[in-house]
Design a protein around this nucleic acid. Structure first.
Lengths: 235, 235
DNA sequence: AAGTGGTCTAGACCACCGT
DNA sequence: CGGTGGTCTAGACCACTTC
């Protein structure tokens, strides 16, 4: 993290989350930030841009930079990598591994992962439990050539923390498709709801910064417990 | 649109959508774009940034700029303003106005819109019909001091086109909350499904660039027909 | 009119990819 | 190593808000 604008962005993000600007609901001017951090204006503006994209602040030409309403916690944040652990901060998150093994890609999965049929994949099925109640079922496939090792320990805590910090993967972008279905019997049983009750589904295709797809996942959420939040900017 | 980087972004977006780079799956280098458009590097990079944020391309340091997989059309795009008409391009979209009148804000709505109880609002309830079949029910509130006039004609086509092009509103950002419920009787009837069938819900709070909330909406989607797509970048 | 963000330029150097 | 993006600087001028 030797990059100035990221350090500044992180610093300001911490300040915002710590409530440092809550009384004014306003950030220092660009001018002031330039002086505080001793960098050029472009660097400050790049840092600020991150905060805008995160949905933390908005800028008004001629007026200043303001805090956005605090988003309700305990919503799933579509735009973050961070997973349940970071989204539902006030809750107890537990994970039960239902399955974890190496499999070979069959046709449909290979097509979606853009890899060869027969390629080695990690297959993981987990039940996520929030405040002692079943919350979601997550099925993931990881390409084994990119994620060479996984175990129950890693899969029980944050897989993404492991991918980023230990494997040093550079995660770049993702496609998420959200819809809603009648839940099947097996999943209903796991989530303690009735078959044909609603289920909120997120299907996720994740790529490295170089464009390689490395993960495919499908999450089935308890319809009464899961809410997704997305903050959008139009520029 | 006298702004260079936006013009360049729009131009490149058009080229991408027209398939101009489909054979190479690669865009010209920054250097080449600088020469083509005769602008500085920063301006080119700002334009490119828009395309990255739209999920159209990705950049790889040391290598180049590449097209992302084409997203399937006929998904609702969470990150766009443009609404069904622009998302479901291959479909016939019709809109039936169920209600449209001026109302006064009662407490709950006033709180969400951060306005006074009793303020004048437009209340609109619409049934959206896609390829001759009911697709969603949309209930919206607009602050009348910001949207002083609306009629059936406008509400039948694209309200946002009217807000942006005719009223010249500067729309800035929005919070979207997505979840899933058992549908009620009245809505089930409109969507031609059964009560207690699933429904995909999007609640939307939209602000001008200056931070003023001006719209609140709730859309109830047919669970078999609606899919939401969101493209995300991690930077 | 003063304050503050938005756009744009020109140029330097660094980091990563592929040959 | 050459090609290509990523970061950073310094300075100019414009556009909008606020008083």
């Amino acid at each position: 993290m030797a990059v100035k604008y990221k350090e500044i962005a992180d610093c300001l993000e911490r300040d915002i989350r710590d409530g440092k600007f809550d009384t004014a609901k306003k950030l220092p001017t660009e001018e002031e930030l330039i002086n505080n951090f001793k960098v050029s204006r472009n660097t400050i503006r790049k840092a600020i841009n991150q905060l805008v994209n995160l949905g933390l602040i908005y800028q008004v030409q001629g007026s200043g930079m303001f805090l956005r309403e605090k988003s309700i916690t305990d919503y799933i944040n579509l735009g973050s990598l961070r997973g349940l652990t970071k989204d539902l901060t006030s809750k107890i998150i537990e994970t039960k591994i239902l399955e974890l093994h190496v499999v070979t890609a069959e046709e449909e999965i290979a097509k979606q992962l853009r890899c060869e049929v027969g390629a080695n994949l990690y297959y993981i099925k987990r039940l996520r439990i929030v405040d002692k109640e079943p919350f979601s079922i997550e099925i993931s496939y990881f390409k084994k050539d990119i994620v060479p090792y996984l175990n129950e320990d890693i899969a029980s805590s944050s897989i993404y923390r492991y991918l980023i910090e230990d494997l040093k993967l550079n995660i770049g972008f993702a496609d998420k498709v959200i819809n809603c279905e009648k839940i099947g019997e097996a999943n209903a049983e796991l989530l303690l709801i009735k078959p044909l009750d609603p289920a909120l589904i997120i299907e996720n295709t994740v790529c490295l910064t170089n464009g390689t797809i490395f993960e495919l996942s499908k999450s089935v959420f308890h319809y009464e417990k899961a809410k997704i939040l997305n903050r959008i900017n139009f520029k």
